[in-house]
């Protein structure tokens, strides 16, 4: 199954955890990629962001959001019809 929402995170990052909790609270299922233990995931994250070296990175369909910006995430989820 491929997810429409993916999050690149590290286990020690509070913002990542906050972002994941926010997604769960909206009933969104997502793929969580731990880039601290997944070099391929890290490579992919850096590719799609044009070189970002910070987490979280949240990908919703083809929209990439760097950092935990709740308003941006909510707006994108709405635009993609994932929440009403």
């Amino acid at each position: 199954m491929s997810y429409r929402v993916r999050i690149f995170s590290t286990p020690t990052c509070s913002y990542c955890k906050q972002a994941k909790e926010f997604l769960s609270s909206k009933g969104i299922s997502f793929e969580d990629i731990d880039v601290s233990s997944n070099p391929e995931g890290l490579k992919e994250m850096r590719n799609i962001t044009g070189g970002a070296r910070t987490v979280p990175v949240i990908v919703i369909d083809n929209t990439v959001i760097v950092g935990y910006e709740e308003a941006d995430i909510a707006k994108t989820l709405k635009e993609k019809g994932l929440i009403s």
Binding site: T10, T12, C13, P39, L42, R53
Partner: peptide
């Protein structure tokens, strides 16, 4: 270069600098 190498959160971002 914020988020492109500059970081204020080593707890978060340290693992990205293997």
């Amino acid at each position: 270069f914020l988020g492109r190498g500059v970081s204020y959160c080593s707890t978060c971002d340290a693992p990205l600098f293997a």
